[in-house]
């Protein structure tokens, strides 16, 4: 598939993208170890220019920096993580609380897992699973560096784990997806529509597992870093048609999920989901749905 093919699809969804949109480098302050104020002081001392991201609790973007953000003593001590702005919102929307039981279904490399632990103040339990052993090594490092003490990490396919009657209060399904061109310069050359459709089938399998493992009235956050509707609205439409769930509105800088795509009319509830269009949010492409089990 060509760049033109995908840009034409986005145009049909009402967005004239150039394919050259970029995202700013962003950080998340680790509240398990430090405060936003202390990190600000440290960065001012180092001569960095940065600003708080207004729609995030612990995020700020870097405007100018003359050192490597991934090799400072503060980074090594776990005081902050490098985490793209849009990808910080799912955990904020999920709002995990101390003493809850959380499932992070596709957890590696662990940025969101450590963010969940920070929201929980290291109290309660996070079960984190990923099928990619190599990426799990990064997750292990991330958890240690950030001082996470309340996780159980498994290697495997999270759709195949049986937790019996142990249901979760909240589930994060940051589903494996085709990604987007903002964070991957070679994206247009790599992606095919067939791959996106295959991803969609896997994502439905994971959504089904999430439904089986969530408590009644529990919250599932479904998220991808894809702009393709097959991985986003079409999956949530399928979920609404097949399971006792509803969608909840939440705040954020993105646009409403689409309800008419390529001539298909979808459930109007999907306007409660959120799309991050790169030209509007200055972030990567992203999609978030907050699903509540009835």
């Amino acid at each position: 598939m060509s760049k033109e093919f995908f840009l034409e699809r986005y145009s049909q969804m009402g967005h004239n993208l150039t394919g050259k949109e970029k995202t700013q480098q962003s950080l998340r302050v680790n509240s398990l170890k430090t405060t936003l104020l202390d990190i600000k002081k440290e960065f001012i001392k180092k001569g960095a220019r940065f600003e708080k991201i207004q729609w995030l609790k612990d995020g700020f973007c870097i405007n100018e920096v003359n050192f490597s953000l991934g090799s400072t003593i503060e980074y090594l001590l776990g005081h902050y993580s490098i985490q793209e702005a849009a990808s910080q919102l799912p955990v904020e929307v999920m709002s995990p609380k101390p003493y809850e039981k959380i499932l992070d279904m596709c957890a590696a490399p662990g940025g969101k897992t450590s963010q969940i632990a920070a929201w929980m103040k290291n109290k309660g339990v996070i079960v984190a699973i990923d099928s990619n052993r190599k990426r799990l090594y990064s997750l292990e490092n991330h958890l240690e560096r950030c001082g996470v003490k309340n996780s159980i990490v498994y290697w495997g396919d999270s759709s195949e784990f049986n937790f019996g009657n142990d249901k979760f209060d909240r589930i994060l399904l940051d589903a494996p997806c085709s990604g987007n061109y903002v964070t991957d310069p070679k994206w247009f050359k790599k992606r095919k529509l067939d791959d996106i459709k295959k991803n969609s089938e896997n994502q439905k399998k994971l959504l089904k597992a999430a439904i089986n493992n969530i408590k009644q009235s529990g919250v599932i956050i479904y998220t991808t870093c894809s702009l393709e509707p097959e991985e986003n609205e079409f999956n949530i439409q399928w979920l609404l048609e097949n399971y006792p769930v509803k969608l909840e509105l939440f705040e954020g800088p993105g646009s409403s999920g689409l309800i008419e795509i390529f001539g298909n009319k979808l459930n109007k509830e999907l306007t409660k989901t959120m799309r991050f269009w790169p030209e509007l949010t200055n972030t990567q492409g992203f999609y978030i749905a907050k699903v509540v089990k009835k």
Binding site: V125, E140, N150, I152, G164
Partner: peptide, 19 residues
């Protein structure tokens, strides 16, 4: 004990609690 009670698959465990 809370973490201990949630171990379901020891063979697939890679990280747990406080390292």
């Amino acid at each position: 004990n809370e973490i201990k009670s949630l171990i379901i698959n020891r063979s697939r465990l890679v990280y747990i609690g406080s390292f």
